[in-house]
Design a protein around this nucleic acid. Structure first.
Lengths: 283, 283
DNA sequence: GGATCTATGAAACCATCGTTTCAGAAATTG
DNA sequence: CAATTTCTGAAACGATGGTTTCATAGATCC
């Protein structure tokens, strides 16, 4: 797909004067040169005068050269039609390379966020933002991410707690929850057996429930009346990647912050100050 | 691999004044912007004056801004037009959208792994694989990721320990380390004050040191004889993203596993079995 | 072949960019 | 708290870039 400048040139190419065509030709050949070079240089490269360059851009309908450059820059920044990144083949025993890793991660991120609906994210953010307290659950391998999510959320609102890994203490922890609270659960395949217990509890006590999970478990979560944030996590070697999970955690925290507006910012600055003090004290 | 400008910035980053760092930061985040924008614009984008911009380039050893731009252009021509995913503009007050989040994450991942050299990764993996014991350090906000990294590494080899956040207990912890051990540190900006202490210790006791960090701190780590795994972490709102850090942790763990070959696989299965048993017991 | 029209670059002109200077702000030191 | 140093942006200034004007060369039309 060509740039808008290229299209305009092609439309009007025969109406242009010979010198203008020389310059136009050059621009078609090296479209990226517009971003990097001045009009004077473009003119020199194609062997015409600065005046001709100025006239060309005007003739193509731009007000001036700056106009051209701005449009080119804008077009570069536009993401364009998102290119679907294919997940690499499952070639067993094949060594993992850096480019392959990148491709896998990109593919998972792209799939995850291209299918994430804004309204679902907002719904989840709203429940976390408005809850009295927020409980974060993540067992086993997901415990690390759960801790990070707790920190991310605690940065933008108070009252965020981690549910311990030890099932024995749950009754105690749950006893202080109420229907005004929210529960955010991170659970990937293989879906730990304790998760349904937690979700069932949340359902009966009318806790608002948000589950960050992978496609193979999304259905189970949905059935527990949870808001599901679905993350693609697969890799060609049979591990799973937590990258998209973390990224989802971050966008969730961001959405909560956005929803809380000033309050979140105040809290963030407060925490930054405290962190600074701790730094100074320890250093 | 980074541009020459980026390298110069990393070398001298801590010598720069705060405003200069702001601009330098911006240039590291959006290296291609140098080609497309004027120095005035670069200054405006990063919220400093034109004067500061002029000073920065001089301090970095260039004769003037034109010098910078010429070098950047030359480098672009040498490496060819890299398919760079552009980092979205800093539009203050603009709401964060899902596509934007995706773009930011993709841009960071792409930059991170396109400039990650296989030999550097392998060198790091080798040290972690061959070490007697492995110590993982991550303070403050990075503590969460450090825990995850510990788990990832512990899955493929024994003897992986987390260094506690409490500086008071370090002497005790360090006392059991030896020159055959490896230290993996995760530290992002703002570079916590305790990190240099840890790295200096590692250097004197001949610990093999691997540091996962961001471009603004890479220079500091390098100076401590550490192997540096550089991660791009910036976002248009002024937070940082940990996604690329996690992804780097995963590829490192993967590389270690690859290097250990069968041993790692055996251990992984062993752990999977144990996990299953725990599941059953608890469920 | 003269009159008219078009195309073109040189040069004048204006706008913007980049550097330097300078005075005040901020941090550091004694 | 004063002295000093460092940092910083506003403004002055010179350089470069971009546009417009204009004289001239070539093409076209009677």
């Amino acid at each position: 797909m060509g740039t808008r400048l290229a299209l305009r040139i092609q439309e009007r190419y025969d109406e242009l004067t010979p010198s203008e065509q020389k310059l136009a030709q050059f621009l078609l050949d090296r479209p990226d040169e517009i971003l990097a070079s001045s009009a004077t240089e473009l003119a020199r490269y194609s062997g015409v005068s600065k005046a001709t360059a100025a006239r060309l851009f005007r003739n193509l309908g731009y007000s001036d050269f700056n106009d051209v450059r701005l449009q080119a820059r804008e077009e570069r920044n536009r993401t364009g039609p998102v290119q679907q990144i294919p997940m690499p083949q499952v070639t067993t025993g094949k060594a993992m390379t850096v480019p392959m890793h990148l491709q896998v991660e990109s593919a998972n991120l792209t799939r995850t966020f291209e299918e994430l609906r804004t309204d679902v994210l907002n719904k989840a953010a709203e429940q976390v933002a408005n809850a009295g307290r927020v409980w974060v659950a993540g067992l086993g391998n997901e415990n690390g991410i759960a801790r990070i999510l707790r920190i991310l959320l605690a940065r933008v609102r108070p009252g965020v707690h981690l549910i311990s890994e030890n099932a024995a203490t749950w009754p105690e922890e749950f006893s202080s929850t109420g229907p005004n609270d929210a529960l955010v659960t991170i659970a990937l395949r293989p879906w730990p057996k304790q998760i349904p217990t937690i979700l069932a509890f949340a359902k009966t006590t009318r806790l608002k429930s948000v589950v960050i999970t992978d496609p193979t478990s999304a259905g189970k979560a949905q059935r527990q009346d949870a808001i599901v944030l679905n993350c693609h996590v697969s890799t060609p070697w049979n591990e799973i990647t937590q990258t998209s999970i973390l990224s989802m955690s971050q966008i969730l925290a961001g959405a909560v912050a956005q929803r809380l507006g000033t309050k979140a910012n105040v809290r963030r600055e407060l925490i930054a100050d405290i962190a600074e003090e701790l730094e100074d004290g320890a250093g």
